[in-house]
């Protein structure tokens, strides 16, 4: 179980120039970022490349880390960007058909995967606070719920979902 508060503390320490926090921060971030990229792309090799590139970029921009933000959300936002870029590159090369055929079995699964990808891409376009609250609601993450008053959490979730719907409509039409 990933300790979000410890992760925030590690990222703050690394952003403050503590070199000793780099290795633990990386080891804490690699599994969730790698798993997220794998789910996003469905191609383990490409996902490893994207996870590596996302963390390399994140470590290069650590001095810009905003302590008020959730560290994992920021890392996943980097990963989302890298995955989307990689997917576009693959599509441009015309390798998307090969990826899809190799990774799924049947038209229904293809449709499901495309839907999941589109949802993740739309989610990735949102701000980290919105992603944080939606992920917390979907995963029944009690940590964020405990830090916020129930009414605040509900309002933040409503606003985040409204932005998610808007973003989805702008990309894919009506929901």
């Amino acid at each position: 179980m990933l300790d979000r508060a410890a992760l925030d503390a590690l990222m703050t320490a690394a952003a403050d120039g503590d070199r000793g926090a780099l290795d633990p921060l990386f080891h804490a971030l690699w599994p969730p970022v790698h798993a997220y990229a794998t789910r996003f792309l469905g191609d383990p090799a490409l996902a490893e490349d994207c996870a590596q590139e996302a963390l390399v970029r994140l470590f290069g921009q650590l001095d810009r880390y905003d302590r008020d933000r959730d560290a994992l959300s920021w890392a996943l936002a980097h990963a989302t960007w890298q995955c989307r870029t990689a997917r576009r590159r693959v599509q441009r090369r015309g390798e998307v058909a090969e990826l899809a055929v190799g990774a799924v079995d049947g038209a229904h699964l293809v449709e499901e995967r495309e839907l999941a990808r589109a949802a993740l891409a739309t989610l990735g376009a949102l701000g980290p606070r919105d992603v944080e609250v939606i992920v917390a609601a979907l995963a029944d993450d009690e940590q964020l719920r405990r830090t916020l008053a129930p009414a605040t959490f509900r309002k933040r979730l409503e606003r985040a979902l409204a932005r998610l719907r808007l973003s989805w409509r702008s990309r894919h039409g009506t929901l």
């Binding site: 290795d23 590596q52 390399v56 470590f59």
Partner: peptide
């Protein structure tokens, strides 16, 4: 091994950012 290589690259990126700042 892949995560070790990624860690080395991440550390290099971190130090590169600090050297650029210097």
């Amino acid at each position: 091994a892949r995560s070790d290589a990624a860690l080395r690259s991440a550390r290099r990126a971190y130090e590169r950012a600090h050297v650029l700042s210097a």
